[in-house]
């Protein structure tokens, strides 16, 4: 497959009369293509092929099994629920934060952006541990809130807890992705709309938001895809006991009880298709919004 790719690539790029003119340069692309094929394309190909591999020949048996099983349906529903909530909340907080971030003095802004960048590194297993310390069963915040009588008990190891931890890692990502989009807003527009008698919310609703809507939407899709594919935090927090789609896939290939790699492949294909679908819809909406302007 690789050997076929490189000359073909060279042929596509070279002049029509001498298609192999740059064959020595093309050789430099070979290690790149080999590594990408071995560690990205080949595993993906294996997953797609084996998802339609039944016990007796090819078929969609695994997909039927997944769709018929309440257990796997719940995994999808849980993943969707947590991803949608955490992306929505994370996006809202990031939006408010990014809007204000543009209005503070430059030095403070740069420091906050740098800080946000650093906290975006706090993810996965370390983040799960940090959350156990803050809002675990004996976490400082849990105790504080319990003492004030605001909560009876908080279960970090539940759906709500996972939403909270996912939202946390979505916020820095959202701020970093949204913050540049606000450059598209011209400060004069706000004054112009104020002169025309618009209130602040009217300016935001009729002027600012429509302009940055594609960026908001794109950010939401990225956050959503990020949350759907996330595994480490949930796994570390619940040791794989919470029913998420990524946790299911991993336990089917590396769990202790039964290994069903073909079923894991089918689940993986469904998850990937879902992500591809979401991204395609996003692209279509983006194109439409640009045409509308």
């Amino acid at each position: 497959m690789l050997n076929a790719l490189t000359p073909a690539a060279a042929a596509a790029a070279g002049r029509p009369r001498r298609p192999f003119r740059h064959w020595r340069s093309a050789l430099l692309l070979v290690p790149f293509c080999v590594l990408l094929a071995l560690f990205c394309l080949a595993p993906l190909g294996w997953v797609v092929l084996h998802s339609v591999q039944g016990d007796d020949g090819p078929g969609f048996g695994h997909f039927r099994e997944i769709l018929a099983s309440p257990f796997y349906r719940l995994a999808f529903i849980n993943s969707l629920y947590i991803s949608l909530w955490s992306s929505g909340c994370g996006l809202l907080i990031a939006l408010i934060g990014a809007a204000s971030l543009r209005r503070v003095p430059g030095r403070l802004r740069n420091a906050v952006v740098a800080f946000t960048n650093m906290t975006s590194n706090l993810a996965g297993v370390p983040l799960a541990f940090a959350f156990v310390i803050v809002i675990g069963t004996n976490g400082a915040l849990t105790l504080l809130l319990r003492q004030w009588g605001w909560i009876d008990d908080f279960h970090l190891y539940s759906k709500g807890g996972l939403c909270l931890i996912y939202t946390y890692f979505q916020i820095p990502l959202g701020v970093l992705l949204l913050y540049p989009a606000f450059d598209a807003l011209d400060d004069d527009w706000q004054q112009a709309s104020a002169l025309l008698g618009a209130r602040l919310w009217q300016y935001w609703w009729h002027v600012a938001l429509p302009v940055i809507a594609p960026a908001i939407f794109g950010t939401f899709i990225l956050l959503f895809a990020n949350a759907m594919g996330a595994y480490a935090s949930a796994y570390a927090l619940t040791t794989g006991n919470f029913n998420l789609i990524t946790v299911r896939i991993a336990s089917l290939v590396s769990g202790d009880i039964f290994l069903e790699p073909d079923l894991a492949a089918a689940l993986s294909v469904l998850l990937t298709l879902l992500l591809v679908l979401v991204c395609t819809v996003n692209q279509m909406l983006l194109k439409r919004s640009y045409r509308a302007r």
């Binding site: 560690f39 294996w46 895809a225 594919g229 990524t246 991993a250 290939v253 998850l271």
Partner: peptide, 20 residues
């Protein structure tokens, strides 16, 4: 091409990697 490893969750590619 470079978007692929970014778009496919690591859990998914590790299913194939583990078998291959």
């Amino acid at each position: 091409l470079i978007l692929l490893p970014f778009a496919v969750p690591p859990v998914v590619s590790s299913v194939g990697l583990l078998q291959l």
